[in-house]
């Protein structure tokens, strides 16, 4: 479980996160949603430590990240997996080597064990063995995301962060990736936080949703509740931005 308590973050004069508090449980798909510029990426990066929050607490199962020393952060990061928006696979390594990389760095496994583990992870994300020796540039965007997921779960992480996991993917592949993350989250009881502005993802896998507007928590709930919120203009504007969801709402209330 990850808890964020009264977190603030500013860049020069701009106050991006304002006293934001939230709780992300394990085994659930925790989605952070909001318009571009609302502060959701800053929140995620502050939780991981790519940005340093100005004040507040970030607790990883009770351990305060903001008070950790360099070595403690380093140890914690071995428990963290991250799926980046652009996959962030290492260009100079093959698909298999990309997944083996964290194992080589931190697992202490033999070469044979590492290869076996990497292959297991790649097969778990439904990649075929023919692609294992290809370089990231030789595979499709959807396959790159799968490799990135395989790399993120290679060390059996307790916490998984996904930054816009289905951006740039077609709706079918996007759904496959969302479902894959959801399955892995439930299977390994991972605390998963997904940063997205894709309403399809929200409706498919949003176990717990945090809506951020102008740096503050504007709403919190599940996908079953999101259509019934009537007193939150910012949320309604976001959820019903597309014609499809307007029609769904109309049909539901008819």
């Amino acid at each position: 479980m990850i808890e964020v308590q009264r977190v603030n973050k500013s860049f020069d004069e701009i106050h991006v996160l304002k006293d934001l508090s939230a709780r992300f449980d394990s085994g659930k798909m925790n989605l952070i949603i909001g318009q571009s510029g609302s502060g959701k990426t800053v929140l995620m990066k502050s939780i991981i430590g790519l940005h340093q929050a100005d004040s507040g607490k970030i607790l990883y199962d009770g351990r305060n990240f903001m008070q950790m020393r360099f070595n403690e952060i380093k140890e914690l990061r071995k428990e963290v997996g991250m799926l980046f928006q652009g996959s962030a696979l290492f260009d100079s390594l093959s698909v298999l080597e990309n997944v083996m990389f964290p194992l080589e760095m931190f697992s202490g496994m033999t070469n044979r064990e590492m290869i076996a583990r990497a292959k297991f992870c790649l097969i778990r994300v439904n990649l075929k063995e023919q692609s294992f020796n290809l370089s990231p540039s030789e595979i499709s965007g959807g396959m790159q995301k799968r490799v990135a997921i395989a790399r993120a779960i290679a060390l059996n992480p307790k916490y998984l962060f996904c930054d816009e996991p289905n951006s740039g993917l077609d709706p079918i592949t996007a759904l496959v990736i969302d479902k894959l993350i959801q399955e892995i989250t439930a299977e390994y009881n991972i605390t998963t936080i997904v940063n997205t502005h894709d309403m399809n993802s929200v409706m498919e896998v949003g176990d717990h949703i945090l809506f951020i507007d102008k740096g503050v928590k504007a709403w919190e709930g599940s996908r079953n509740e999101i259509f019934d919120v009537s007193d939150n203009d910012a949320l309604n504007e976001f959820v019903f931005a597309s014609e499809l969801f307007k029609k769904v709402k109309y049909a539901l209330h008819k």
Binding site: R77, V80, G81, M82, F84, G86, A88, L89, M105, F106
Partner: peptide, 17 residues
Amino acid sequence: GTMRITEQIDALEIMGV
């Protein structure tokens, strides 16, 4: 620089490298 802008360096940092 390319590794930086394609978040590969961030990926290394997140892994604890």
